[in-house]
Simulated assay, not measured.
Amino acid sequence: MPTTEHTVTSGRRLAHPTAEEIRLETVLHALADPIRLTIVRELADGHANMACIAFDLPVSKSTTTHHFKVLREAGVIRQHYEGTSRMSRLREDDLEARFPGLLAAVLEAARRSVAPSAPSA
């Protein structure tokens, strides 16, 4: 049975896979969704330890919660509570150690896909 790490703050426990438990297919599944990829891009762009409510996503609160849960359970993000806010940060070091270059490649591809195209000459 897998062991999971728990982040405990104010009596609230959030389960996270250990670095060794992070699986490639689970990470790729988590990153395949455009909403989750938006969350990861925003965290990667310098918004470490960002509260879930700070994300402006075009989905309901319950759907947003689901997307964060998928990312957390895949090992893409780590979450903890600060007061009543659930804070999120990318597990960049764990992902890089487990799958070198994967996160950087996915983020670069995502940035290119949303960047405006140069006009044709």
Rank of each mutant, 00 (worst) to 15 (best):
A15Y: 05
A15K: 14
A15P: 13
A15C: 10
A15E: 14
A15F: 07
H16N: 12
H16R: 14
H16A: 14
P17Y: 06
P17G: 07
P17E: 10
P17Q: 10
T18H: 01
T18Y: 02
T18F: 05
A19L: 08
A19K: 11
E20D: 11
E20F: 02
E20M: 00
E20S: 04
E20A: 05
I22R: 11
I22C: 09
R23T: 11
R23W: 06
R23M: 07
R23Y: 08
R23I: 11
R23P: 05
R23H: 13
R23A: 15
L24A: 10
L24P: 07
L24V: 09
L24D: 09
L24C: 05
E25I: 09
E25G: 06
E25P: 08
E25L: 07
T26Q: 11
T26G: 11
T26L: 14
T26N: 13
V27K: 02
V27N: 02
V27R: 01
L28W: 11
H29R: 09
A30L: 06
A30W: 08
A30T: 07
A30H: 08
A30Y: 08
L31D: 07
L31H: 05
L31M: 09
L31A: 05
A32S: 15
A32Y: 03
A32M: 06
A32E: 13
A32Q: 15
A32N: 14
D33L: 10
D33V: 12
D33W: 07
P34S: 00
P34T: 03
P34F: 01
P34N: 01
I35G: 03
I35L: 06
I35V: 11
I35W: 04
I35M: 03
I35H: 05
R36F: 06
R36H: 13
R36T: 07
R36W: 07
L37K: 15
L37Q: 15
T38H: 12
T38A: 12
T38N: 10
T38K: 13
T38F: 07
T38M: 08
I39H: 13
I39V: 15
I39R: 15
I39D: 11
V40P: 12
V40I: 12
V40Q: 13
V40K: 14
R41L: 00
R41E: 00
R41Q: 03
R41K: 03
R41D: 00
E42I: 01
E42T: 04
E42G: 03
E42Y: 02
L43E: 12
L43G: 06
L43K: 10
L43H: 11
L43R: 10
A44Y: 04
A44W: 03
A44D: 06
A44I: 01
A44V: 05
A44R: 03
D45Q: 05
G46R: 01
G46T: 00
G46S: 02
G46I: 04
G46Y: 01
H47W: 08
H47P: 10
